[in-house]
Design a protein around this nucleic acid. Structure first.
Lengths: 179, 179
DNA sequence: GACTTATGTTAACGATGATAACATTTTGAC
DNA sequence: GTCAAAATGTTATCATCGTTAACATAAGTC
């Protein structure tokens, strides 16, 4: 687990830690922002991996409980990441990492941005929510989960609730909001 | 509107902008973090003022529409701040400002932390939501609004929806999630 | 073997946050 | 009004930081 905020990482300290001169870093990264962007990229990949593990995209959910379960697991992956790697989480979703444009824009909603809509669609397909989920539904669901994760990564750390419980609750409430 | 990210503010540049030496700043602030904390504090006060203006605490809502309206206005204030002052918003809710403990802890839920619970209570009192809202209800509502604001202040700027529309929608969905 | 590429080095530059030592103004008590 | 103290500013200096330049060396290619 990354402890201190990565954004405060000193390029020189990092280099020293690697037993290498500061200038050597510039053989691999254009500048500090580029380095942070790479760290963010790798962190994001790990998050994506969590999504992938949590969520089987290959087949639609068999029944309503499974569809619910999928959303819950997705929320758990999202929240869990914010919980166990708050500093990395903050970096990924910070303006610092913004130079790395690969993360930020949900243009075609590919990559990681597919899971949540897919989860919502599964809820619809198994009859849990009445209407075909649209972009706004997805944005709200994302807001709720992202907000919970953000609060957990910062203002309201683990205190109030164990992770799985929170994930379950958030998923339930998101579903309720779509009914 | 504060344009560039305040967290990147240089103490020296600031001092120069004020026509004063850099060292003079240290007569008023312990260090850079202290300065940022003060900026965050003032920003937070402005946000609180918005809440206050948006939300009349003196009397309970007269009827259901008014109770709904209050939550909507609250969401609008929250989202509006993230929308018009994204950099200041980010500073307030960033780890940078964390030294200023006055903002972060929702211990007694006084100050700004009273508005959202009060709004939810109003929804219950006017019969919109069936159960007396508890801390978890408030936390979820906060998550949803905070998440929407966070996304709007960063990853998903103003694009998808005009502000009032988004606020209305978020409020509606939050209410739905509590039914 | 010569040339290119990748990767490292040291030395230096300017900007930054911070501190020390010193000067000046404001203020308040007597 | 005097005068000491507090407040507020100054310049000089430091270590650190991101970054660049100039140079060295190892590995691989023709």
């Amino acid at each position: 687990m990354v402890q201190e905020d990565i954004a405060n990482l000193s390029l020189r300290q990092l280099a020293a830690g690697l037993g290498v001169s500061a200038a050597a870093v510039y053989r691999h990264f254009a500048d500090r922002d580029d380095l942070l962007a790479e760290v963010a990229r790798i962190g994001f990949e790990r998050l994506e991996k969590q999504f992938e593990d949590a969520f089987d995209m290959t087949c639609p959910p068999a029944d309503a409980p499974e569809a619910t379960f999928r959303l819950r697991r997705l929320a758990e992956a999202y929240l869990g990441f914010a919980d166990t790697e708050p500093a990395l989480w903050r970096l990924i979703f910070s303006a610092q990492a913004e130079p790395f444009r690969g993360i930020t824009p949900p243009e075609g909603c590919g990559g990681s941005y597919q899971y949540l809509p897919a989860a919502l669609l599964g809820l619809h397909q198994t009859g849990i929510i009445p209407t075909q989920p649209n972009e706004r539904d997805a944005l709200f669901a994302w807001s709720a989960i992202h907000g919970a994760a953000t609060l957990r990564a910062g203002l309201v750390p683990g205190a109030l609730m164990p992770l799985t419980e929170l994930a379950t609750e958030v998923a339930e409430r998101v579903i309720k909001s779509l009914k």
